[in-house]
């Protein structure tokens, strides 16, 4: 539900990904980490939900 909800709000779905990995599946974990990093890199730096420093005049 969270995935659908954030996508509905306009946030790129690649930024939130789920997987079931046990602590003994190190290979799968590493592989998935690489995949997600690559997918997010393709989407690019976030432009939504970005909080900048408050500007003081």
């Amino acid at each position: 539900m969270l995935k659908r909800f954030l996508e509905h709000a306009g946030i790129e779905p690649e930024r939130l990904q789920f997987s079931w990995i046990s602590s003994s599946e190190a290979g799968k974990f590493a592989e998935l980490a690489r995949e997600v990093i690559e997918a997010v890199r393709k989407v690019g730096p976030p432009k939504k939900l970005v909080k900048g420093r408050a500007e003081v005049s």
Binding site: H8, A9, G10, I11
Partner: peptide, 12 residues
């Protein structure tokens, strides 16, 4: 739901 992602972000 039928809008595109940018339009949805703008809506919210």
């Amino acid at each position: 739901e039928e809008l595109g992602p940018e339009a949805r972000w703008k809506f919210f």
